[in-house]
Amino acid sequence: MTLDSRVKAVADIKTELLFDVVVDLNPRLGIGDGPFGRRIFFGAAGGSFAGPRLRGEVLPGGGDWALFRPDGAMTLDVRLTLQTHDGALIHMTYGGRWIVPAELRADMSDPIKRYQVDPARYYFRTNPLFETGSPQYAWLNDVVSVGTGYLVEGAVAYKVCQVI
């Protein structure tokens, strides 16, 4: 294959920690099997986030309208509201994919074993974007970020990194 002559060498993608977040979850709501898979709502009950430039709480009321595809993969559709320690509100949205290998699915379905599975054994990635009217955090409106997810008891957690 010949490389197109218009392709330029550009810098590799680099990231830096934006924050770690834990989203506490309400009991799941099974919306049911539809034309694209099984839809389940995981409602956000609260939580917290902290990083070098911002910290605060995850407010109740958002959640993940997750779609479990027939092939076993989960597609995320998340909307959350973050409140910083100084009262600013930030709208956080992200999609993503959670791919659990077939040999781990039984353990991930078990209410106790799922927290013992090493997150390195599954693929759980997100692409958070932010919106805020707060002048102090307006820089977030222009940030592209990526996240790595994992399960913790009663919650889901992510390491979120800004693409720099």
Rank of each mutant, 00 (worst) to 15 (best):
R79M: 11
D77A: 08
E103W: 05
I164V: 09
P35G: 15
T81H: 03
R69G: 07
P101C: 02
T75C: 11
G51A: 11
T84A: 14
G87E: 03
R79P: 03
L151K: 10
D20L: 05
G37W: 10
F19T: 00
V7D: 11
Q162L: 04
V22D: 09
V23K: 13
R69A: 15
L104R: 09
L59T: 00
R6D: 10
G47V: 00
R105H: 04
V163D: 07
S5F: 05
E131N: 08
G63L: 08
N127K: 10
L59H: 00
A155G: 03
M74P: 06
E57R: 15
R97F: 05
G47R: 00
K8R: 10
P35W: 11
D107Y: 05
R121L: 13
P135N: 05
D20V: 04
V23S: 13
Y122I: 06
N141D: 09
M92F: 03
A45T: 07
R97P: 00
G147M: 02
R69V: 11
L18Y: 00
T93A: 14
G62R: 14
P52S: 12
Q83Y: 02
R114Y: 06
A45I: 06
L29Q: 14
R6M: 11
R105K: 12
I31G: 05
R38N: 11
E131Q: 08
Y150M: 05
R53H: 11
P27L: 12
H91A: 15
A102D: 14
D20K: 14
V58G: 04
Y137P: 03
I164C: 09
G154P: 01
G51D: 09
S48C: 04
F36K: 14
N26R: 12
D33C: 11
L3P: 09
K159Y: 02
P119H: 01
R121V: 04
A9N: 06
V78D: 02
